[in-house]
C-alpha cells in the first residue's frame, strides 16, 4: 500500500508555467488555499485555470489573479471579485464563461470517459453559439443535428464537450495516507468532480489520518484518483 503524503515543496514542483489547472471552490469556500499559496511562492505564471469563480479580491484564487499568474480562465462567474472583473475588462485575463451546471457536466465527462454531454442549459442564449445542437426525432427514435435557432422546437440539447486538466488541486477535510478523501459541508462543491478530471491530482487535507480511520461508506473521493497529499495550513485561509 503506497502512502502518498509529500511535502508542499514536492507537490508544487509538479506545477509549472502554462499548465491547465482545475481549482475548486465556491466563492472562497472549499478553495485549496495552501496549494495556491505554494504556487504563488513558486511564482508560476501563464496558467489556464478552470474554476467556478475567482474567490474574492485578494483571497483564494483571487491571489493568483492579483499576482497576474492567470492567462485564461474557464469559469461561470467572476462577479464576486472586482479585481478579476477589472483585469478581464482591461484584457489582462481572457475568460470563457460556462454555465455552472454545464461546467460540472463537462468535467464529469472529462473524468468519466464520456465524449460529451447533452444539456438543455444555454439553448437560445449566447452559450449556444458555435456549438452543435441536437433535436430528438420522436418518430425515428434518433437525434438529428439542427442548425436553426428555435429553442421552442424540441426537445433540444446543446452538445457540450469534455473538460480535462493537467493538474487538479483539491481541498479535503480529511484524507487518509493513501488518498481516500472526505469533505466538510459546502466546502465539498467542485472538489470531487475536479479530482476525477486531471492527469495529476494533489490533495491538501486539514487532517491527514491513518489508513482505515475513514468509514468506507462516507468516503467521497476514492484513493485511486489521488496522486499526492499535503498538509493544509490553516493560516493560508486568511
Amino acid at each position: 500500500m503506497k502512502e502518498k503524503v509529500v511535502s508542499i515543496e514536492e507537490a508544487v514542483s509538479h506545477i509549472h508555467d502554462g499548465l491547465t489547472i482545475m481549482v475548486p471552490g465556491f466563492v472562497n469556500c472549499g478553495v485549496p488555499q495552501t496549494l495556491i499559496q505554494a504556487m504563488l511562492d513558486k511564482g508560476v505564471k501563464d496558467l489556464n485555470i478552470i474554476s467556478n469563480n475567482t474567490s474574492v479580491k485578494g483571497k483564494g484564487i483571487g491571489k493568483l489573479v492579483h499576482a497576474e499568474a492567470i492567462k485564461h480562465i474557464t469559469c461561470s462567474h467572476i462577479g464576486n471579485n472586482v479585481e478579476t472583473v477589472e483585469k478581464v475588462v482591461n484584457g489582462e485575463i481572457n475568460v470563457t464563461f460556462v454555465p455552472q451546471g454545464t461546467l460540472c457536466e463537462r468535467m464529469r465527462a472529462g473524468g468519466a470517459g464520456l465524449g460529451g454531454v447533452l444539456t438543455p442549459t444555454g439553448l437560445g442564449t449566447p452559450m449556444q453559439e458555435g456549438k452543435q445542437v441536437v433535436e430528438w426525432d420522436k418518430e425515428k427514435g434518433e437525434y438529428k443535428f439542427v442548425t436553426d435557432a428555435d429553442p421552442k422546437k424540441g426537445p433540444r440539447y446543446v452538445l457540450e464537450l469534455p473538460l480535462h486538466a493537467d493538474v487538479a488541486i483539491i481541498h479535503a477535510w480529511k484524507a487518509d495516507k493513501i488518498g481516500n478523501v472526505v469533505y466538510h459541508r459546502t466546502a465539498r462543491n467542485f472538489n470531487p468532480i475536479m479530482a476525477t478530471a486531471a492527469d495529476l491530482v494533489i490533495v491538501e487535507a486539514e487532517e491527514i489520518v491513518e489508513v482505515g480511520a475513514l468509514d468506507p461508506d462516507v468516503i467521497v473521493t476514492p484513493s485511486c484518483l489521488v496522486d499526492m497529499i499535503v498538509q493544509a495550513n490553516p493560516e493560508d485561509r486568511n
Binding site: I78, V85, G101, T102, T121, G122
Partner: peptide, 15 residues
C-alpha cells in the same frame, strides 16, 4: 456594462 458571468442562473432557469 457587466460581465460577471451567469453562474448557475442558466441551469436553474432551464431545469
Amino acid at each position: 456594462k457587466t460581465c460577471a458571468g451567469m453562474g448557475g442562473a442558466m441551469d436553474l432557469v432551464s431545469g
